[in-house]
Design a protein around this nucleic acid. Structure first.
Length: 450
RNA sequence: GCCCCGUUCGUCUAGAGGCCUAGGACGCCAGAUUCUCAAUCUGGUAACACGGGUUCGAAUCCCGUACGGGGUGCCA
């Protein structure tokens, strides 16, 4: 059990219009810590930058925190609405001589009042500051490295360090859990808080999330938006579970588990120090496991947006939801993302199947025996009973006559009817959801091309 | 350049001086199963960056080197 009581943590994103996976991981770790320690989670939007102060830039952040299941106890607070408090802090620092005015040429100006057009710099004292980080231990920085940093811009707005420090104090934040990219600025925060007569929070700098080049994930290079992953068909639970394992691992080594168990296992001091690669292959595996855990109704529910999307290859008039209901149990175990459902069922709804050229070439065109198989199948299916078992055995018998095993026998039929060499079990859906005429039409069409 | 942080299988991690001939997971490879592909099951591959210390004993502690990353804005 953690000894920490009454912790107060915050997730303080900048409004960017989307939730970045790295930010989401930071939010998650704050939330895990709060929930594990019975603490309070605060949400604060850091919109000090004027042009970030727009509702449409924050909407996605709220939406995707909710999607992941990260709730908060206080907020959202907006940094832009706290200008008064920031101004007061600056005023106090100026009066105490701990900060000074700077003109446009960066020359120090006398005075203890904010002057329009003048920035304010913190008067960094001699010495060094050591921050105590739960994850990294003690980190010491010489003040000579810090310089007299700007805390108030000449346009009358606070800088990030100032606003962040003042807000953390006012909101009584006890633990600042954030990305390692902020480690360098931590001493400035500590200096500011001390100058304002406050005690800094305990810090915990999380290892960065990196791409295959081992660089910090960035919007420009990498797929970082949570929205993008949702659209690709990842489940929130799989994503949250996966994110929890980046920079942390439970002591019992059980990786895939309900969030309640993650909370029970989570210890901030167990977080490791090295950067973590965001591995899509492992996320896909997690997603597949979570998809298989759903019951049919739940799966159908999350699949629906993908089947009713605009990008689907069939026309809406041909779509038959009842067929999907029948198909879902057959394909559930194959899905790694929700979007995978589309190529499993499209052949049942498209007038002409979506043809995978490689499969068509390899299985039908390049394989001389396919024509023979198709001829035989067409002949038999014309008047056999239209029942899955009968059709299946008929196809296998024809293949056998040509010296083919079951695997080889079904291949030409599958490609002719579905357009692909991979897909759901073939015979049951084909017989139950397509008419005899349609199947024969597709078989003849394929035969004609050979 | 300067400052800071980091370094265990390809990847995510376990490891808190003897339990480590280093464990798990993903990936990959092989086999089983199978109407395809998956899924499933079985087995396998594969790592303590390097060099010095400390210690009876080091993946674990200390120092150095190398490499990687982050920060060095009136961005957050």
């Amino acid at each position: 059990m953690s000894a920490v009581q009454n912790s107060r943590v915050r997730f303080a994103p900048s409004p960017t219009g989307y939730l970045h996976v790295g930010s989401a991981r930071t939010a998650l770790f704050n939330w895990l810590f709060a929930r594990a320690t019975g603490g309070t989670m605060v949400l604060r939007i850091e919109d000090t930058d004027e042009n970030r102060n727009r509702p449409e830039l924050t909407a996605a952040i709220f939406e995707y925190l909710k999607w992941l299941g990260i709730d908060y106890d206080e907020g959202p607070f907006y940094q832009s609405e706290r200008r008064q408090q920031h101004r007061q802090a600056i005023q106090q620092l100026l009066c105490d001589g701990k900060a000074y005015l700077c003109d446009a040429n960066d020359n120090e100006q006398p005075g203890t009042e904010l002057v329009e057009g003048c920035a304010v710099r913190f008067r960094t004292p001699e010495g060094s500051t050591t921050i105590s980080d739960v994850i990294r231990g003690e980190v010491t920085v010489e003040h000579s490295q810090l310089g007299d940093f700007v805390i108030w811009r000449s346009d009358g707005s606070p800088t990030f360090v100032l606003a962040n420090a003042v807000d953390d104090q006012d909101m009584a934040i006890t633990h600042a859990i954030r990305g390692e990219d902020l480690l360098s600025s931590a001493p400035r925060s500590v200096l500011l808080m001390q100058a304002l007569g406050h005690t800094p929070p305990v810090y915990a700098h999380l290892p960065l999330l990196v791409n295959e080049q081992r660089k910090k994930l960035s919007k420009r290079r990498d797929d970082v938006s949570l929205e993008s992953y949702r659209k690709q068909g990842y489940l929130a639970k799989a994503m949250a579970n996966y994110l929890a394992l980046l920079g942390w691992g439970p002591r019992d080594e059980v990786e895939i588990r309900p969030m309640a168990e993650v909370i029970a296992q989570f210890q901030l001091e167990d977080v490791n120090r090295s950067a973590a690669f965001f591995d899509l292959a492992k996320l896909q595996h997690f997603n597949g496991v979570y998809i298989r855990q759903l019951d049919t109704a739940e799966l159908l529910d999350v699949l629906t947006p993908f089947l009713e999307s605009e990008e689907v290859p069939w026309s809406k008039a041909c779509y038959r939801p009842e067929v999907v209901v029948a198909m879902v149990p057959l394909v559930q175990e194959k899905l790694r993302t929700l979007a995978d459902i589309v190529p499993q069922v499209d052949w049942l709804f498209c007038g002409e199947p979506v043809v995978d050229q490689t499969s068509w070439q390899k299985v039908l065109v390049d394989n001389k025996i396919s024509a023979e198989v198709l001829d035989g199948v067409i002949a038999v299916l014309t008047d056999c009973a239209w029942e899955p078992e009968i059709v299946k055995e008929a196809v296998f018998r024809i293949g056998e006559a040509s010296g083919l095993n079951r695997s080889k026998s079904q291949a030409p039929v599958r490609v002719a009817v579905t357009g692909r060499s991979v897909g759901p079990p073939l015979f049951e859906p084909m017989v139950l959801h397509l008419s005899r005429q349609e199947v024969l039409r597709r078989l003849r069409r394929a035969r004609c091309c050979l």
